[in-house]
Simulated assay, not measured.
Amino acid sequence: MKKSTIIALVSILTLGNIFTGCEAVKNTNNTQRGAAIGAVGGAILGGVLGNNIGKGGNGALGAVLGGVVGGVAGGVIGNKMDKQARQIETALPGAQVERVGEGIKLVLGENAVRFDTNKSTLTAGAKANLDKLIPVFNQYPDTNIQIYGYTDSTGSAEYNLNLSNQRAASVKAYLVGKGLASSRFNTTGLGIADPIATNDTPEGRSQNRRVEFAITANEKMVQDAQKEAGK
């Protein structure tokens, strides 16, 4: 762990102890901790999350999820994200769902979203799994969804970058075609970057061929949370 990260974590824990006490922190849920610590340490927490998210240390996705509103408003957002994360896990058990800060990291591996070999065409199974997520996304219209496409290291980096861009775009196009607002989505292809497993084995390469979502509050959700917090 980097020295700056250790310092940041110590700062967060110190702040948490000052305002809530060690035992009290242990007995709170994620939302409550986010509200209490976020009020004074949101910026620090966001930096830690942004630098250390996931096995691959995904800088791009971490930068999106690392932003923290903090305070009571952050707790309101966190509560909504807790509920959405649970619903995603129920709808698609094969997905990797992780609550990060005030957002959600969703990883769809080949077991959930497959593409035809060397193509960006979604398989029938992939479409069926994305269909399971649509009701959840519809229930939370005030969220933004950043889609990242990844590949393994087989082939040239340039080829894989283009392919990952096309695959992320295919996921967006499918979801938009099912009625979700296009304005909610942004797509990025990252190719062979940020592997979450070794590329030296077939199993590892399969894990690296994936799509990741960063689900965050849009401006309306933030404003509504701030209004609710001010009551």
Rank of each mutant, 00 (worst) to 15 (best):
S4P: 01
A39R: 11
V48W: 04
A193E: 10
D152L: 05
K127A: 00
L15A: 13
T14M: 06
R205W: 06
M221Y: 09
S206N: 05
S182V: 03
N218M: 09
I7H: 03
I12Y: 05
Y159A: 05
E23D: 09
T14E: 07
L13Q: 03
K119L: 00
A112H: 01
Q146A: 12
A43S: 12
G54T: 13
L161F: 15
T28H: 05
G101Y: 15
L92P: 05
S182G: 01
E98L: 13
M81Q: 07
R99T: 15
V222Q: 11
A229H: 10
E102V: 15
D131A: 08
L175D: 02
A214R: 04
T201F: 10
Y159D: 00
G67M: 08
S120I: 06
K80I: 07
D194F: 15
G50F: 13
G149M: 06
I88F: 08
G46K: 12
V40Y: 14
G47L: 09
A126T: 02
T143D: 02
L108F: 06
E219H: 09
V222H: 05
S120T: 08
D142A: 11
V25F: 02
G41I: 15
I147E: 00
L15Q: 01
T216C: 13
K83V: 14
L122R: 07
G50D: 13
D152Q: 05
N58K: 01
L13S: 07
T143R: 10
N186Q: 10
G67D: 10
N27Q: 12
L13F: 13
P195F: 07
A173Y: 00
G57L: 14
G177Q: 02
L9H: 03
K227I: 15
A36P: 03
E212G: 02
E110P: 00
V69N: 11
A181D: 14
I192G: 06
S156I: 11
L106R: 14
I7C: 02
I37S: 10
L9T: 13
K55I: 15
Q226C: 10
G74Y: 14
L122H: 06
I104T: 13
N111M: 03
N218E: 07
T154S: 05
G34K: 09
L175P: 00
K105V: 03
T90G: 00
K105Q: 12
D194V: 15
T188N: 14
I88P: 00
P135W: 02
I192R: 09
E228V: 15
L133M: 11
K227G: 06
A193F: 15
A181Y: 07
K132W: 00
A126Y: 01
A43K: 09
Q139A: 15
P195Y: 07
F137Q: 06
N160M: 04
V64C: 05
N29L: 09
G66F: 14
G42R: 11
A24K: 12
T188I: 12
A112N: 13
A169M: 01
A39N: 04
M221A: 14
V222F: 08
G66W: 12
V136F: 03
G71C: 04
L163S: 02
F185Q: 04
S170R: 04
M1L: 07
M81G: 03
L61A: 12
D194E: 11
V222Y: 07
A73L: 07
N218I: 12
P93N: 11
S164W: 05
N52K: 07
A157Y: 06
I12C: 11
K2E: 14
G101S: 14
N27E: 11
I192Y: 10
N186W: 08
V136P: 00
S183W: 01
A24E: 02
N138W: 01
A112I: 13
T154F: 08
